[in-house]
Nucleic acid binder design. Sequence first.
DNA 1: CTTATTTGGTTTCTTAATGCAACCATTCTG
DNA 2: CAGAATGGTTGCATTAAGAAACCAAATAAG
Lengths: 153, 153
Amino acid sequence: MTRKRFDDMGCSVACALNEVGDWWSLLVVKQAMLGTRRFVDFQHNLGIAKNILCNRLSRLVDNGVMVRVDVGEHGKRYEYRLTDKGRDLFTVVTALRQWSERWNGEKDAMQLVDGQSGEPLAPVVVNNQQGKALTVRDVRFVDEDGKPWEDVG
Amino acid sequence: MTRKRFDDMGCSVACALNEVGDWWSLLVVKQAMLGTRRFVDFQHNLGIAKNILCNRLSRLVDNGVMVRVDVGEHGKRYEYRLTDKGRDLFTVVTALRQWSERWNGEKDAMQLVDGQSGEPLAPVVVNNQQGKALTVRDVRFVDEDGKPWEDVG
DNA sequence: CTTATTTGGTTTCTTAATGCAACCATTCTG
DNA sequence: CAGAATGGTTGCATTAAGAAACCAAATAAG
């Protein structure tokens, strides 16, 4: 059957996953954050099949995460660049990277450091308005009327 | 062909996606963060097929993101609960939720608020060691020797 | 004890996605 | 013009996803 759509579940997480939640999309975005812009470079760096890469780039462009820029230089040459919306995924990618390093001990070949000081970044945390760090135990899920969430029967 | 493995790319993001990067896993985790624990409740709240849910829960348990607890109450009854590793995905899920609300205007049926004050949370940001907010333009990717990253030929 | 129900799970079958290789068209280089 | 680079597309085999039916254990109802 056709794959389940996630954009009409009334869930923002599901909606986000509908755009960047498949196997490759977030890796393409991460690669773009490293500076990769050209089709062949994405292909070589990620080891992704050309048709899949083609499909993912098109979808990312359609969703406003990346833009395709024509740079008439050699052959048919384009550049794929992140939009503001795409760059804003930096938080998500970084949080995911840190989570993986914390729990899987998977050392990335590339370390992410402050461009100025060269120091590693601080762990990404969720804060309340006063700047206090919160865990999932410190928050509530409420509907528009402030009623707490409950499982449906 | 068999799906590409992401756990041997030397990339922590790829490694993370290998565990929670498919269509449903992160939604199951998000649902667990809302308090859902039982098989049928996951099924009803997410609208996921039973075999897929079964597969995802097994994988999440195998990867140490959730645990299956036997609560011998009625029929074969189990509870699926987040582990510390699973709860630590709160940052990722929250960042993804906020990204979606910022760019898609998709209002979630459930709002996430501070459990004490009832106020909405602060936006998740990436900080350096001194607490200064960083964008993707403010960071560098370097290898073990401090050399900046470059596209492979 | 017998029957029905709840719960968690497997099987079967159809459809969609993934991956690989081959092929194509355009544009630059020599 | 020949050849290579770039960015695709197409065809085919394999795998995953989704829906519905079926199953087994344990409990509740009678």
